[in-house]
């Protein structure tokens, strides 16, 4: 109960700060519109106001405060504007029976989610394979690991268009290029986590297997792999969030018409900040759901393995 109160307090503070930030962000636009509509504002004339401090403008024109939370195209939309837009493009569509219409975030979310899941599967598979190789071969350790690290230092936004162009030229298009970009981001945490996990058994554990004359295969399946499970799940949670980012970034350079990335892009083309923010929140909510889902799977799996103490 105490924690709930604390959590809600933090949430309330964030929302209050957000509403407060709308005042200085939107005041100039609001005053320009108000002046056009014939209201007296202090000082008159957009030119005079251009170089003035926004806090001062808010204080001099307190009548305009409610309007900063209700603009059609605000610089910073207020929380309730984003919430209303989210509802209009999700729940309201469902009620109208148009769940998968082109204006629905379910439609766009699913487009992005399908690429995310495919990319996540590719990235996880690749990551586990690389980690197995790295743990068992010193050559792989020294040759693959540095490249894996370098791969993550290149900004994905720079690489994504090239991946798409190269794949298009060999005839690959559709969901796969996006999935590959998303796999590119998600394999890395899996490699790092699994290498650590597969190496987690201590020398005593390895000696014990040697006294049984166990071979490499048995050591892997009976000791290293089960010992790495907690590490794997931690990596998967980071990996799935990275996958979602990858899928969204993959939608930007193609000028895609569908997907959360396309909503972001469309919103910025037409100055629809409310649409941008609602797409951002949809992405965040989606990521939170995916991570939470993995958390549930983690608990169930580790509990069944007897490690969920």
């Amino acid at each position: 109960m105490k924690t709930l109160v604390a959590v809600l307090t933090v949430l309330a503070v964030i929302i209050a700060l957000w509403y407060a930030a709308c005042l200085p962000m939107n005041i100039k636009g609001v005053l320009t519109e108000a002046e056009r509509a014939g209201v007296t504002v202090v000082p008159a004339g957009a030119k005079e106001r251009r170089d003035m401090g926004v806090i001062g403008l808010v204080l001099d024109n307190s009548f305009a405060i409610p309007a900063t939370w209700a603009q059609k195209r605000p610089r910073l939309p207020a929380p309730h504007q984003v919430a209303v837009e989210l509802w209009k493009t999700t729940g309201a569509m469902v009620l109208k029976g148009k769940t998968m219409s082109k204006r629905s975030l379910f439609f766009h979310g699913w487009v992005t989610l399908s690429a995310t899941l495919l990319g996540f599967a590719i990235g996880t598979g690749l990551g586990i394979l690389l980690a197995v190789g790295i743990v068992h071969s010193r050559v792989m350790d020294m040759s693959v690991m540095p490249w894996a690290i370098v791969s993550q230092t290149i900004p994905i936004i720079a690489l994504a268009p090239m991946i798409i162009v190269v794949l298009y030229s060999i005839g690959v298009q559709g969901i796969l290029p996006k999935a590959i970009i998303s796999a590119y981001l998600s394999f890395f945490p899996v490699v790092v986590g699994m290498v650590k996990g597969l190496r987690s058994p201590d020398s005593m554990q390895l000696d014990l297997l040697r006294t049984y004359s166990a071979n490499l295969n048995q050591g892997f399946w009976k000791l290293r792999l089960p010992a790495s499970m907690p590490y794997l799940f931690t990596s998967l949670k980071i990996g799935i969030a990275a996958s979602l980012v990858g899928a969204i970034v993959g939608e930007l350079p193609t000028g895609a018409v569908a997907g959360l990335g396309a909503r972001l892009l469309g919103g910025s083309y037409y100055g629809q900040t409310v649409q941008i923010w609602s797409a951002l929140f949809a992405a965040a909510i989606l990521a939170a759901c995916l991570v939470a889902l993995l958390g549930v799977i983690e608990r169930v799996v580790l509990k069944r393995m007897g490690m969920g103490a």
């Binding site: 005593m204 554990q205 000696d207 014990l208 006294t211 000791l223 089960p226 499970m229 007897g306």
Partner: peptide
């Protein structure tokens, strides 16, 4: 058969 200082039982 070898017995170590720690039991080394697999938690899973």
């Amino acid at each position: 058969g070898y017995v170590f200082q720690a039991s080394g039982l697999y938690p899973w």
